[in-house]
Design a protein around this nucleic acid. Structure first.
Lengths: 186, 186
DNA sequence: AAGTACGTACAGAAAAAACTGAACGTACAG
DNA sequence: CTGTACGTTCAGTTTTTTCTGTACGTACTT
């Protein structure tokens, strides 16, 4: 009886401490472009010793298995969780990626890189069109003036995206850690 | 008649070129945590020579003035647009921030810094509680083992957040440009 | 070959977010 | 002081997103 109370007391404190952290993570994970509940799942996985199955997640969070399935997929795409193989276990097992630096890096490598590519693609295409306009006899000088201004803007933007790409390179190659070391030496 | 056609032709081409870029920006601006339509507003502002009023934006995008007002506010918070003062003009004027590097930096300084702070706060609080538990006689060894594992995880996380803070520091101070120069020298 | 356990596609329901128009407060003009 | 122009608040509507249960396909078991 006494022992049970002891256990319950500590268990609850532990739960409170974890829940606070999980809540904080869930609230801020939108920086990675995912919803609170996906963040809650991720936070929960963080504190699990063992990889979890979809059914265990469903149980723990009180949500549908469908939701667990799609949420895990999102987290997999972001490389925030890993699929774990364990012989003899039929169910899929997942665990939270525990290298947070890598998670940060992957986010840029996956999401930002894609965004940059898309913007660069559009801008180069438009830039080519605008340059053609400049040399087009049939277009009025007034419009050409506008086109020239747009060209300047796009060239500036492309310069920025070149920087951003180099920035992501430095993350992907881990060179960034030469500049900002993992351990604080101050 | 001929002149009009000339103008129309070029104007349309210009419009197509711009629209492509604006679309791309709108599609990718979710990286900054804002919606497509806010991105569309931002993209539109980019190509404007002069600062715009809310009424002009409303006109240009065919949306309500209310939307323009709230969208601009969001963009102001992210420092992606600036309020412009012009004497004699009663209406508020806004223009897109044209230093994209700064926009990138501000995003981290504003959003990521806040997220980090919140997580660190929660983690330190929980960490203190867990450490107290470790020395609590009334708590079972089993629970203490779990607490110890959590403590390790939180300490690792705090180390990561310290790195992330230093990372944002290097952006805010512009030191990052010593490591990754704006101009590509290769 | 039949049965069972599993993950996921899909359609509909529930919840959340974006958008709008009307009403309001403020500032300036006359 | 009154009237007008402006930006914003707020409540309601529309649109989008998230969530769920059912149905399905696959793979393993017996």
């Amino acid at each position: 009886m006494m022992d049970v109370n002891k256990n319950m007391e500590g268990k609850e404190q532990l739960e409170v401490a974890r829940e606070r952290v999980i809540d904080a993570i869930a609230q801020n994970i939108n920086l990675y472009g995912v919803t609170d509940s996906i963040g809650r799942l991720y936070g929960m996985l963080l504190f699990q010793e063992k990889p979890m199955t979809l059914d265990e997640m469903k149980e723990e969070l009180g949500m549908s298995k469908t939701s667990m399935s799609t949420s895990v997929r999102t987290l997999l795409e972001l490389k925030m969780v890993d699929k774990v193989w364990k012989k003899g276990v039929r169910k899929d097992l997942y665990k939270a990626e525990d290298d947070w630096y890598q998670t940060f890096i992957d986010f840029f490598t996956i999401k930002w890189r894609a965004g940059v590519s898309m913007n660069v693609y559009a801008m180069e295409k438009s830039l080519a069109e605008l340059n053609k306009m400049i040399n087009d006899e049939t277009i009025s000088d007034e419009i050409k003036e506008e086109a020239k201004k747009d060209i300047e803007k796009l060239e500036y933007a492309l310069e920025y995206y070149s920087w951003l790409n180099r920035f992501v390179d430095s993350l992907e190659s881990q060179e960034i850690f030469n500049f900002i070391p993992k351990k604080d030496n101050k």
